Computed example of a mutant assay.
Amino acid sequence: MFASSPERPVASISNWYAGGYSYDTTYSWGGANNFKDFATTGSGRCSYLSYISYMSTADLLGYDYGHDGAIDHWQMVSGFNSGYSPYTQLMTQHTGGYFNKPLSEILTAGSSASNAWHSAMRT
């Protein structure tokens, strides 16, 4: 199926799927910031949270490393540490093989993650 097909418009932010080729994969699948547009505006499936501490299981945390308003990377909350601390969420991502890594470790002072602007979203 080609990009011009009305059944699968790849340029629409209302669609999110991967095909076997670049012409059959939506823009929202191919980039972190494009996914943000799909999740919020295109599908309405996600909404922004005021604070990272409000995130629950399956919520998303976006990172804007360039401070330019564009999301560069996403992580998902996959669980919680026991006990209380401000960032008890456990995060999972494909890059670097993070699985249930404590958010408090990810946001260690001086890391690229701690210097990024953050967008927390409820799924």
Rank of each mutant, 00 (worst) to 15 (best):
G79H: 06
T123M: 15
G96Q: 04
S4M: 06
G69V: 03
S28R: 11
M55P: 01
G69E: 03
A120Y: 01
Y54K: 06
A32C: 13
L107I: 03
Y54V: 01
G62M: 05
W29K: 15
S50V: 03
I13C: 11
S43P: 03
T108Y: 05
I106C: 03
F2Q: 05
R122P: 00
S56N: 11
Y21Q: 13
A32R: 04
T26A: 11
M121F: 02
A39S: 12
I13E: 10
P9R: 13
G42S: 10
S4F: 09
W117I: 01
M55K: 02
G96T: 06
T40I: 15
S12L: 12
L107Y: 00
T95S: 15
S82L: 11
G42P: 07
W29Q: 15
N15E: 15
T95N: 12
T92H: 07
F80Q: 03
K101N: 09
N15V: 13
S112W: 06
E105P: 00
S47I: 13
T57F: 13
P6E: 06
T57K: 15
N34V: 05
Y17D: 05
K36Q: 13
M121V: 09
G97P: 06
G97Y: 10
C46P: 02
L103N: 00
A116Q: 01
Y48L: 10
W29S: 14
G79W: 04
A39I: 07
S53D: 06
S5A: 14
Y17T: 05
R45L: 15
M76P: 01
A58S: 14
P86W: 03
K36E: 12
S56E: 11
Y17Q: 07
S50M: 05
S85I: 04
G19K: 08
R8Q: 10
Y98W: 14
S4Y: 05
Q75V: 11
G30I: 10
G42I: 09
H67I: 02
I52W: 00
T92L: 08
G62Y: 01
G69L: 04
A32T: 08
T40C: 11
Q89R: 01
N34F: 12
F99R: 13
N34H: 13
A116H: 01
T57E: 07
G69F: 02
G110S: 02
S56R: 13
F99P: 00
L107T: 01
T95Y: 14
M76C: 10
S78F: 08
G31P: 04
S112C: 04
S85W: 06
W74M: 06
G96Y: 04
N33G: 11
P9W: 07
G66E: 09
M121H: 03
F2T: 06
Y51Q: 12
Y48M: 09
S114Y: 08
Y87L: 09
G62V: 05
S112E: 01
